[in-house]
Design a protein around this nucleic acid. Sequence first.
DNA 1: ATGGTTGGTTACCAA
Length: 267
Amino acid sequence: MSSIRIATWNINSVRLRIDMVLRFLDEYKPDALCLQETKSPDGLIPTAAIEAAEYGHIHKAGMKRYNGVAIIANRPLQDPEIINHCGKEDCRHIAATLADGPEVHSIYIPAGGDEPDREVNEKFGHKLDFVNSLADWFPRYRKSSNDIVAVGDFNIAPLETDVWSHKQLLKVVSHTPIEVEHLDNMQAAFNWQDAVRQMIPPEEVLFSWWSYRSRDWAASNRGRRLDHIWVTQPMGDKVTNAEVLKPARGWEPKPSDHCPVLIDVES
DNA sequence: ATGGTTGGTTACCAA
């Protein structure tokens, strides 16, 4: 039985952390790695090093300073697309089909600023609108009976066990009821299965991100699960493994504040 | 209540 491995990682600058990308590819050998926050114009992404690591197939949408998504694969990526939402070309959503495999989407949902009120914080409104746009996009342009994987930094931790304190984060952007409601609606609109929570029970506390703003991220352990892997239903039953690679949060010399998340799927 | 750190870029903005 052969298997496909798909990973996602908010890398927080692909140029600064290209060595960590190569380390991840070497140690975990995903068939496709989806990156977010590459923070690099397309021409400046160090593709030569990635290609030398035998990941010769790269689809990317990058811009100066902000955002940026990529898909790195060890086999051809067919029908590459860049998808825009909310009338912006801000490099948050790309897709391509892995040869003899599923269609893969790398998504970076806006963080949403500090104030969870769209009347006073337009970034929060943009976040909610972006999730709504994704909820509309998939049923409009795709069939949920096809093999499709949507991964990325969704910037929302939906479950009580996805945050270090449900009570203390109810009014903190990423875990407010309105955001969770929007994400739940997007999930239901295409019958997405949360592949990670399917393998790691919802009762279990699980984080994929720890802020830089703490003296000792591991000791304080105030994390959130912001990074997700969703699959369509025919695929859901074939997921055999899901992992959040917490050790990468401590990778020297300068870790990303997110760790990689991966799944294995029978193919 | 507040401040804490990081990356890209180069005066702060976004996270």
